[in-house]
Each structure stands twice: as structure tokens, then as C-alpha cells.
Amino acid sequence: MNIEAIQGLGAHDEVPASLPPPPAAGAPAGLPFSQLVTEGLQGVNQQLVASQSDLQKLALGETQNLHEVMVRLEESRISFQLMMQVRNRVLEAYQDVMRMQI
């Protein structure tokens, strides 16, 4: 059995020595969660609007590069699917918390 390939992967598994320290308890850790969610939703919405505009231009024959249109459509589809998965996970976590007995 050849283990040289496996040994080559070991260097990538190490944790870098210069990790930032974790935030102190009670200290603000950056942006509030609601602001992060709002910015994420706005970003997904902008991608969807841009892809809809690209589709309209494609239907009218005004686009020059079909490849770029298809790439932007796929990016917006993937970002929308990611947003839906995050929503599902948040909703599932909320339901788990609500089912907890005190």
C-alpha cells in the first residue's frame, strides 16, 4: 500500500498558529444578526433582479454573450437555493427551541 499520497495531505490539516482570539463574552462580535440577514436577502434579491433583466435581454435578442447570461442565471439560482436552505435551518432551529420543555 502506498501511503506517500496520504502523508502529503497531513500538512493541510494543521491549524494555523495566527488565529484571531475569540471575542470576549458579552463583547459585540460585529454586525447584528438582523443586519446580516437583511444584507444577505438584499444581495440575493439584486442577483435575481439582474438575472431577470438578463433573461429579458436574451428574449429580445439584445445580449451578446449567452455564456455570461447562463453563468449569472446559475449564480442567482444557487444563491437562492442557499438562502432557502438557511431559512429552513433557522426555522427548524426555532421549532426545536419552541418544543423544548422548561
Rank of each mutant, 00 (worst) to 15 (best):
N2L: 06
N2H: 06
N2W: 06
I3E: 13
E4N: 05
E4Y: 05
A5C: 10
I6Y: 09
Q7H: 02
G8P: 05
G8F: 03
L9K: 11
G10V: 15
G10P: 15
G10H: 15
H12C: 11
H12Q: 11
D13E: 14
D13N: 14
V15M: 08
V15D: 09
V15K: 06
A17H: 09
S18W: 14
L19V: 00
L19D: 00
P20D: 02
P20F: 01
P21S: 12
P21T: 12
A24N: 02
A24R: 03
A24P: 01
A25E: 11
A25C: 11
A25G: 10
G26L: 02
G26N: 03
A27D: 01
P28H: 01
P28R: 00
A29Y: 06
G30K: 01
L31I: 01
L31D: 05
P32M: 01
F33W: 06
F33D: 08
S34N: 12
S34M: 14
Q35D: 04
L36A: 12
L36F: 08
V37F: 00
T38S: 11
T38N: 11
E39D: 11
E39N: 10
E39R: 08
G40R: 05
G40D: 05
G40K: 05
L41T: 15
G43T: 08
G43V: 07
G43A: 08
V44K: 01
N45R: 15
N45W: 14
N45H: 15
Q46N: 08
Q46L: 10
Q47A: 01
Q47W: 01
L48S: 02
L48C: 07
L48T: 04
V49P: 04
S51F: 05
S51I: 10
Q52K: 14
Q52L: 13
S53D: 03
D54F: 00
L55E: 04
L55H: 04
L55T: 03
Q56F: 13
K57S: 09
K57T: 07
L58Y: 06
A59R: 05
L60E: 09
L60F: 08
G61I: 00
G61P: 00
G61W: 00
G61D: 00
T63P: 02
Q64C: 07
L66H: 10
L66P: 07
L66Q: 10
H67K: 12
H67M: 11
H67F: 10
E68T: 08
E68R: 07
E68P: 05
V69F: 04
V69P: 02
R72M: 01
R72A: 01
L73S: 03
L73G: 03
L73R: 02
E75A: 09
S76N: 07
S76K: 03
S76I: 06
R77G: 11
R77P: 06
R77C: 11
R77A: 10
R77T: 07
I78E: 12
F80G: 15
Q81G: 13
L82F: 14
L82A: 15
M83G: 02
M83E: 01
V86N: 02
V86K: 01
V86F: 04
R87D: 15
N88D: 14
N88Y: 09
N88M: 13
R89I: 12
R89P: 06
V90Q: 09
V90L: 07
E92Q: 08
A93R: 03
A93E: 04
Y94E: 15
Y94R: 14
Y94P: 13
Q95D: 12
Q95T: 13
Q95F: 12
D96T: 14
M98G: 10
R99K: 11
R99I: 09
Q101M: 13
I102D: 15
